[in-house]
């Protein structure tokens, strides 16, 4: 049997995947890159057979590669696109085609035999629920800021009074475009309690006590390796403006690294990007863990060998 391949499921314009694929290519590991979102608009062919007690055989072909579905050593799941139906389809027909592709193709790609997933899409999906994150973070011993999830205006007001200053964080991001066509987003910023109104009841909101931090830390865990980078920013939410950030690789306290590993183990993840705020006393307060985030720019800024760590994880036979 041929050398087993690494299957990279990602968008065409994903620089983090480019780094990993280039490294695997340098190592002579076969790589197949695929965006499942391209499936319905053509260019990907798949057939899978189950016979002889359900044993799988099959293959998948892109414009440049053919993949034996039974000979995949690992899958790198790096935020591929959702399925896009052909424009000529009516809404009902489009929904039908998309759901067949999700349950058919994605189902197949999520159940490849003897294959390591970094990370498994079902585990990613589970780990993206904030409530799951809080439960897990608390179980492994992280310090978590006081948090409220609510659609009740009175409770939001009381939380601000008891824990102010308070920030609002979306429970899930969705794309928004302003009237001028430019994308807009929601940063983590303090809430003025006077701004709260009845539209809190329109859906669920998350409020959290502000950590009295001196800096932020992004801790990226890749397999057994833990990389922490201190990020200094004039903004409460450092993602607001990358041009003004400074980065410094720092050691991870032993108990924090242990808690990160326990967190990932608990949720069946091999990769996670943890965000912390650190106080003047050197305490690390846990904010969140992104199970599918980017990291390549941190390697560029600090030289931490994160591409090599990811390639190690994908190269190893599960």
């Amino acid at each position: 049997m041929a050398d087993p391949a690494v299957l990279v499921l990602t968008r065409l314009d994903d620089p983090t995947s480019d780094e990993v694929i280039a490294e695997l290519h340098r190592r002579g590991i076969p790589v197949v890159r695929l965006d499942p979102g391209d499936f319905l608009t053509g260019g990907i062919e798949v057939s899978a057979w189950y016979q002889n007690l359900g044993q799988l055989s099959g293959h998948l072909a892109t414009s440049s590669r053919t993949l034996d579905l039974t000979n995949v050593r690992s899958v790198y799941y790096r935020r591929p696109s959702p399925h896009e139906p052909p424009e000529v389809m009516s809404d009902d027909n489009a929904r039908f085609a998309v759901e067949q592709a999700r349950y058919g193709l994605n189902g197949l790609l999520a159940s490849l035999p003897n294959c390591r997933y970094v990370n498994h899409p079902r585990h990613i999906a589970h780990a993206e629920f904030k409530a799951v994150q809080f439960a897990t973070a608390s179980a492994v011993g992280f310090q978590i800021p006081a948090t409220l999830i609510t659609n009740r205006l009175d409770d939001a007001r009381a939380f601000c009074a008891d824990h102010g200053p308070v920030v609002y964080k979306p429970l899930r991001n969705t794309p928004f475009t302003a009237t001028n066509g430019h994308p807009v987003t929601i940063w983590v910023r303090p809430v003025d309690p006077d701004d709260l109104d009845g539209s809190i009841t329109a859906t669920v909101h998350l409020f959290q006590a502000v950590v009295d931090k001196v800096a932020d830390v992004r801790t990226t865990v890749i397999g057994d390796q833990v990389f922490s980078v201190r990020i200094d920013s004039p903004h409460l939410d450092w993602r607001e403006d990358y041009a003004v950030l400074t980065y410094r690789a720092i050691p991870t306290p032993v108990h924090t690294a242990q808690a990160c590993r326990a967190y990932l183990r608990h949720l069946g993840l091999l990769y996670g990007a943890f965000d912390f705020g650190i106080t003047r006393d050197g305490e690390w307060w846990w904010y969140e863990c992104n199970p599918a985030g980017q990291w390549h720019w941190l390697e560029a800024e600090t030289g931490l060998p994160m591409t090599a760590a990811t390639a190690d994880l994908l190269e190893a036979i599960a």
């Binding site: 968008r11 314009d13 620089p15 983090t16 499942p36 979102g37 935020r79 591929p80 696109s81 959702p82 399925h83 999700r102 349950y103 994605n106 189902g107 999520a110 899409p121 079902r122 990613i124 999906a125 993206e128 991001n173 969705t174 794309p175 475009t177 066509g181 430019h182 994308p183 987003t185 993602r239 990358y242 992104n290 599918a292 985030g293 980017q294 390549h296 720019w297």
Partner: peptide, 24 residues
């Protein structure tokens, strides 16, 4: 290319944490 990178109306690049994870 950062996690919260932008895009424009014509050729939007969804910010990383805005991308929808498709799963079964």
């Amino acid at each position: 290319s950062n996690p919260t990178g932008g895009g424009d109306g014509k050729n939007p690049t969804p910010p990383d944490d805005v991308n929808v994870t498709d799963y079964v």
